Structure formats: C-alpha cells, structure tokens
Computed example of a mutant assay.
Amino acid sequence: MTQPPHDEIATSEPGELRERVDHTRDKLGLTIEALAGKADVKADALGRASEVRERAAAKAGELKEKAAELAHQAHDRLPDPLKDTAARAAEQARTKTAAAGRLWQEKAPEPLRQKTAHGARSAQDNRKVLLAAAGATALVWLACRRRQG
C-alpha cells in the first residue's frame, strides 16, 4: 500500500470529505461577509448618521420638556395680580388689533390693501430670510453698542 501525498487529505469516507468541504465553504462565506461589512463605508456612515440623528432628536425632546417645565415654574412664581394684568393687557391688545384691522379694511384704498396683502404674503413666504436678516441686524446693533460702551 502506498501513502497519500502530503497535500491530499487522508480520509476513507467521501461523506466526511464533503462535510469538511461544506464546513470550510461556510467559514469562508462568513469571513467574506465580515470583510464586506467592514468595507461597506457608506452603510457604516449611514448607520452612524442615523444614531446621531436619534440622539439629537432625543436631546431636543429633553430640552423641550425642560423649557416647558421652566416656563410652568416661572408662571407659577408670578403673583396673581401680575398674571391678571398680563391677561387683561393681552385681551386689550387682541381687541385693539381686531379694531385696527376692521378700520384698515374700511378706510384703506383697495390698491394699498392689495399691496399690503402681497407684502404680508411675501413676508410669510420668506420668513426664514427675514428672521436671518433680523438676527444679523440685532448682532450688528449689539456689536456697535458693545464698541461704544
């Protein structure tokens, strides 16, 4: 009898040989999947971005709750006479605003009302730009004020 060469597997059962091949193939497949997962930078970045987004949303929720809690605490600390005065002032402001709107509708010429309505729609449509401009103006004003003081 001759001995098998060193590079051949010594086995007498073809079934055992098939099992070894299948096992090796499975291990190789898992290794390739693991390497492919490490090489998938886009999926990794998307996963991390999702995690960051979830953490930011959670933090925003916490901050929102904290702000609401602080607002309630401030409201609870206000003396009742001050709350009543503020409520009356708000009601007066609503009443006067409504009266001014009615007077505007009655007295203002139609072309002026149309231009005003158009300007109001434009302001609503571009409110982000207007808010940014207002913020920039406030920063410039504060910088000038700080420089003078």
Rank of each mutant, 00 (worst) to 15 (best):
L17S: 05
H23I: 12
E54Q: 08
R20A: 02
A57T: 15
G47S: 05
K38M: 04
G29H: 06
K59D: 00
L28M: 02
A45S: 10
E51D: 11
K42T: 03
A45P: 00
L35Y: 06
A34L: 04
R55M: 08
K38A: 12
A60K: 14
D26C: 12
R18E: 08
A56E: 03
L35R: 07
R20E: 12
R18T: 06
A45Q: 03
G47W: 02
L46I: 11
A39W: 07
G47Y: 02
R53K: 12
R48Q: 05
R25Q: 09
K59F: 00
A39H: 06
A56T: 00
H23L: 07
G29M: 10
K27H: 10
S50N: 11
I32Y: 04
A58G: 03
K38C: 02
R55N: 05
R20M: 09
A36G: 09
E19I: 06
D26K: 02
A36C: 12
G15M: 15
A34D: 02
A36F: 10
L17R: 10
R18C: 01
R48L: 15
V41L: 13
A60N: 15
L46A: 13
R18Q: 04
R20K: 08
E33G: 01
R20C: 07
A34R: 03
A49P: 00
S50D: 14
D44L: 12
V21C: 01
V41I: 14
L28G: 06
K38T: 13
E16G: 08
A60D: 14
A49T: 03
R18L: 05
R48M: 13
H23M: 10
V52I: 14
A45K: 15
L28Q: 09
K27D: 06
P14M: 01
G37L: 06
L30H: 12
V21P: 02
D22G: 05
A49R: 08
E33K: 14
A60R: 15
L30V: 15
L17P: 00
G37F: 03
A43R: 00
V21I: 09
